[in-house]
């Protein structure tokens, strides 16, 4: 018996979600009176996981697995779960985790509850709370299979340090040719830029910004805050910004700590996708804009005046608080 997490890394470094998964799964393991194992692929510094309560890390080092490959990675996690006799397996909500989870669920004959936002309500029956209707509601889901697969929403649990010594074990899963039937030809990824998925803060612009030539200040505001940039759907439909920045019900979900919306009206479809963010700020010159009903803080004003001032003030703030 054990709880297993699949900890993601990039260029050898664990992602923050890896520590969040560890913190979350540690509590489940405690409740169930069992141990916590992590499985990691081509990562360094497994000791970092121990700081968040991981008892044992199965470390896979493989040239074949250099690029993410959903089927092969699902195979790795499934073999780790079988070896450990894991009853609960937890993965993140990254694009890659959501890609491999359904395959993993079939391999483990597990019921899968994605977008889970809290510790299980009960472990017998096994019941979790997840978002549904794109953040317009929560749903309590019972998983009835022997093995349970949970997809944890980003930022839903936070980090909790734990005491303990973790061990590391080399793990060599058996992979088959069929695992590599999807061949990665090229990866086009902006390096050095924070992604919406990983960002603590997201700065988002809407049609109120009038045109793509005005995005300089959005990018600058994002840079000062170490934030990712995003946009409303019409902005990407108009080609002002890439599709990958479109957030909302039909775009990317945002679950950051801080979401700043500039010149965005706050349509229901937009709000649905960003409601999981903790603190929301709106800057809009129309006090009647629906976003003011959804936001925590608001500035009624012209973005072209407010944003440049905010950038300057934030720079001063950062300089004083460095």
């Amino acid at each position: 018996m054990s709880v297993l997490i699949y900890t993601e890394s990039e260029n050898g470094k664990f992602k923050k979600t890896a520590f969040e998964l560890a913190s979350y799964a540690r509590e489940i393991a405690n409740t169930m009176g069992t141990s916590l194992t992590a499985v990691a692929v081509n990562a360094e510094n497994a000791g970092e996981l121990a700081q968040y309560g991981v008892d044992k890390t199965l470390m896979v080092s493989s040239e074949e697995l250099k690029n993410f490959n959903a089927k092969a990675y699902a195979d790795v996690v499934a073999q780790a779960a079988k070896k450990e006799g894991s009853e609960v397996v937890v993965v993140s909500s990254s694009a890659n985790a959501k890609y491999l989870a359904p395959e993993l669920a079939i391999k483990l004959e597990a019921g899968y509850a994605p977008n889970t936002v809290a510790l299980p309500e009960s472990t017998s029956p096994f019941k979790v709370k997840r978002t549904a209707f794109t953040n317009k509601a929560f749903n309590f889901t019972e998983i009835s299979t022997a093995v349970k697969l949970i997809g944890l929403s980003k930022n839903a649990f936070g980090l909790k340090e734990a005491q303990g010594e973790g061990t590391v074990e080399d793990f060599a899963p058996e992979l088959e040719a069929g695992d590599f039937a999807i061949e990665v030809v090229s990866v086009d990824k902006v390096s050095g830029k924070v992604t919406i998925a990983d960002a603590e803060t997201v700065v988002s612009g809407g049609r109120g910004l009038k045109g793509p030539e005005n995005w300089g200040m959005i990018e600058e505001l994002a840079e000062v805050l170490g934030a990712a940039t995003a946009c409303s759907k019409p902005v990407s439909d108009l080609g002002w910004r890439p599709h990958s920045e479109h957030v909302g019900q039909t775009g990317k979900p945002v679950a950051s700590n801080l979401y700043i919306a500039v010149g965005i009206s706050g349509a229901i479809q937009h709000l649905a996708g960003i409601n999981a963010s903790k603190t929301k700020v709106v800057i809009n010159n129309d006090p009647e804009a629906p976003f003011f009903k959804a936001a925590d803080y608001g500035v009624v004003g012209d973005a072209f005046e407010v944003v440049p001032q905010l950038i300057e003030k934030l720079k001063t703030f950062k300089a004083n608080n460095a």
Binding site: F68, A95, N96, S186, V187, K189, V190, A197, S244
Partner: peptide, 9 residues
């Protein structure tokens, strides 16, 4: 689409 970019397969 992947987090932060895209991938051709």
């Amino acid at each position: 689409e992947i987090d932060g970019g895209k991938e051709t397969v």
